[in-house]
Design a binder for these strands. Structure first.
Lengths: 356, 356
DNA sequence: TTGAAAGCGCTAACAC
DNA sequence: GTGTTAGCGCTTTCAA
């Protein structure tokens, strides 16, 4: 260490480096930014050693100040507790980091705090936004405002019927269809469903829940298969909700009055709950009830039985979103609004039986 | 909207507000920062309306520039995929957000990228750091350097034998002991363990794995209970590792040559794997083998059987860490290094039998 | 009670 | 090739 303890709070600036190297600040700036074409190798070395000797550390804030960009992207998540948080963040980081962008993170569970988070981050001068939501209905005004401000951003997993906003959606309807088709292809004709929150309360209702449910319903209708209202159970997208729904299903099966032989469970958490309920009720999966679900968490292969499920392309959504805003930033062109819809992939394991 | 589309990129500055209100910039600054004592209510109103009319948005970057602090904390995580990521982040955000601090997020899986991440964030002028690790052995030099720079930071869950660095540790040893004691209190005398990576390779080895293993071992020794080397299986802290270890345990149990009747599984992921292995082998938990584990993920109550486990105080660690660095920042005093050790809490469910 | 002015550390014309 | 200089938008003495 070159510094005594007493000096350590004095920040070394580009001016100090310039002085020590006996050159002007702009030359230092050029070298530090790799604009070597304009600088002779000799001065270059001079500057580099001076910087090293002084333990110089460029101040990115000052740089942002003049360049008027921060190389920082705001990542807003509606719920940290949500399992999707990990994969999006992974995807986002994976593309942002090599591009030299940083992530400013905030969680915002409702519309008000989302507005606040965006406002704060705009104050922090983030260059763009990635907003990962829970597919609830949210007001859209503040997003349009963002767009008007020319700040690139993309919304993942929200139900927006605006074509002025870039968004990445998951094809929930076709997920419901794929799951149901899978069950039908296995010979099932009596198929129940455990849904996410279908409430009309916009604060609770999840669009994904509705989409998945619709997919299930349409598929049964198209195949001319029976739909019993008793076979539609709301599991609230929670473990416990899935458990309770599973219990109801189990009692129905035990009564043997034309019970379902299969069930489409709209989320992995609910599926885990349902599996336990069925087990607790003394029923066998898949023999008494085949189960297919959505979401492929790490534990899906280790439940009893292992879950046949539709993998959600969440990390991919994160990657795409990140790429979109980075592209826009690099091209210095506004992000022209597009809606990308991502599909799900079937992972066959045990919960629908050995054949699939 | 007051602006036409063409003007929307012209940023409104404090000077514009001052001009419009017919006052000096300093007065505007006072008002905007709530230093109302020095300003007459009349001018105050003037300024506030001017700001509103211009849709003025303060530039936090410029502010940071002069105040030389950013109200931003760097959060460095060794592995986004790790389940602990969610609870720490939650804890950290919970205390940081109301204090007006922001989170700059980065993942860094090895020592080199940790050094890089810290360097980048220092360039970004973060005010402090929270470093959440995987309890591997990491070099400590860059941390000491951070400390010398007077930047407050705390390290969570790393095995540092430096008393110059603030850290929050989990009492892994006593977790191992508690788990084992629980099994013993239930009458078990033949107790196996599935451990985390115990390898001597510092890149793989986890200190937590070692601590938990030691806790198990010491407890058995103190009780004069037998320890068979065959009862120590490395499950690598993964689902699959737990599964494989579970399979081995199962074959040992079936041979009936003095098999273990209980097992301390050092992580919840491994426990889930082991549960499945035991099930696949046709064995019953807890009847054929009681299982106690560490980590209380949301699904723990819904495995078959539900996991009796030791809850890790990870969110609490995040909260404490965040509080520590915020305190230090507010007091403008260096964080005096302390090592806080957090304990685990027993959650009794089904995997050790109805009695516990 | 208010305003003018001097920076915070850096980049990028613009001169030489 | 290299140095001088004018800001980026804000806070904060210091005078008035």
């Amino acid at each position: 260490m070159l510094f005594s303890k007493t000096m350590r709070h004095k920040t070394v600036t580009i001016r100090d480096v310039a002085k020590r190297a006996g050159v002007g600040v702009s030359t230092v700036s050029y070298v530090l930014n790799g604009h070597n074409d304009h600088v002779s190798p000799a001065t270059r070395d001079l500057i580099l050693t001076a910087a090293r000797e002084l333990n110089y550390r460029p101040n990115a804030i000052a740089r942002s100040m003049v360049k008027r960009q921060t190389a920082t992207i705001g990542l807003i998540i509606t719920e940290l507790q949500n399992a999707l948080f990990i994969p999006v963040t992974e995807g986002v980081e994976e593309v942002l980091q090599p591009e030299g962008y940083h992530i400013l993170l905030a969680s915002a569970g409702d519309a008000t705090s989302e507005v606040n988070a965006i406002e704060t981050m705009r104050a922090q001068q983030v260059d763009g936004f990635i907003i990962m939501s829970l597919s609830m209905r949210f007001p859209v005004d503040h997003l349009l405002q963002l767009r008007d401000a020319g700040i690139p951003f993309v919304v993942i997993n929200r139900d927006l019927n605006s074509n002025e906003i870039s968004q990445i959606r998951l094809d929930e309807d076709s997920a419901g269809r794929m799951a149901t088709e899978h069950l039908i292809s296995l010979g099932h004709t009596r198929i129940a469903t455990i849904t996410g929150p279908l409430s009309n309360d916009p604060l609770i209702r999840r669009q994904s829940a509705f989409g998945r449910y619709q997919g299930w319903r349409s598929t049964l209708e198209e195949h001319g298969l029976p739909i019993s209202e008793h076979w539609i159970l709301d599991g609230h997208y929670t473990f416990e909700g899935g458990y309770q729904a599973g219990l109801k299903l189990a009692s129905r099966i035990k009564k043997r009055s034309g019970p379902p032989t299969a069930c489409f469970v709209a989320s992995d958490m609910m599926a885990v709950g349902a599996l336990k309920a069925l087990h607790d009720a003394g029923l066998q999966v898949p023999d008494d009830l085949a189960v297919v679900t959505i979401g492929d968490p790490p534990f899906a292969a280790y439940t009893i039985p292992a879950l046949t499920t539709l993998e959600m392309p969440i990390a991919e959504a994160g990657r795409i979103a990140a790429r979109m805003v980075v592209e826009s930033l690099k091209a210095k062109k506004p992000l022209d609004p597009q809606c990308i819809t991502l599909g799900f992939k079937l992972r066959i394991r045990e919960s629908c039986g050995a054949r699939g």
